[in-house]
């Protein structure tokens, strides 16, 4: 895999097929965690890290369990169990080992497990039959894409707080429309030929 392949794959994942604004996965956490810049960055980083780990696990289980035993029909259950179980174990260990985590953080497993972007990235990399390196790069770049999108959206929302919006559109409706317009801007990247 040459450098230009890596670059084009990551550019596709970040811009042309942005996980949130292009493929519409993980919209709920995208809208819920973008109220402030701080929570947006937090969500972006945690989703990126989870995606990276989860894509590796998805590749390994696909090649070692699902393909040899022909468990295609069990794929969803296996992947969901990996995500939810892994997060629960991580959380339990972190809570036990560090008092800081137990007291301060609000991140709970359901916060990431109920995120279609995480399950989506596992299914996309496996379905597209990507090799190990490509799937890791694609997942990481998708995480970066999520972070970029949520930071842009959070900064727009901060401005929205001070703008004069019709009463019926205040809050959720204008947030949805703004997200749609940002998605429109991102769809401009689809015309660029990265390959």
């Amino acid at each position: 895999m040459s450098f230009s392949d890596i670059l084009s794959l990551s550019l596709i994942a970040i811009f042309a097929e942005n996980i949130v604004l292009g493929q519409m996965l993980g919209i709920t956490p995208f809208l819920k965690n973008s109220q402030s810049m701080k929570s947006a960055v937090k969500a972006g980083v945690s989703v990126t890290l989870t995606m990276l780990v989860v894509a590796i696990l998805a590749y390994v289980t696909e090649k070692s369990i699902i393909m040899p035993f022909r468990l295609d029909y069990m794929r969803t259950v296996i992947f969901v169990t990996i995500v939810a179980g892994g997060l629960c174990i991580c959380e339990a260990i972190l809570r036990k080992k560090s008092s800081y985590f137990a007291e301060k953080t609000e991140i709970s497993p359901s916060y990431i497990a109920v995120n279609t972007a995480v399950l989506g990235i596992m299914l996309i990399t496996v379905n597209a039959n990507l090799d190990f390196l490509s799937s890791v790069i694609y997942a990481f770049a998708s995480g970066i894409g999520f972070t970029v999108a949520i930071i842009i959206f959070a900064s727009v929302r901060e401005r929205l707080e001070y703008s004069d919006v019709p009463k019926a559109f205040e809050g959720v409706p204008i947030a949805l429309i703004t997200a749609g317009l940002i998605a429109l801007a991102f769809s401009g990247f689809q015309g660029i030929k990265f390959m």
């Binding site: 604004l21 959720v172 429309i177 997200a179 749609g180 998605a183 429109l184």
Partner: peptide, 22 residues
């Protein structure tokens, strides 16, 4: 048909629901 259009339509519907609620 694009995802953005879907979001905008959803936003309009959300505004309608909000208006009815108020």
């Amino acid at each position: 048909l694009s995802g953005g259009g879907g979001l905008v339509i959803l936003g309009m519907l959300a505004a309608v629901v909000k208006k009815i609620n108020s």
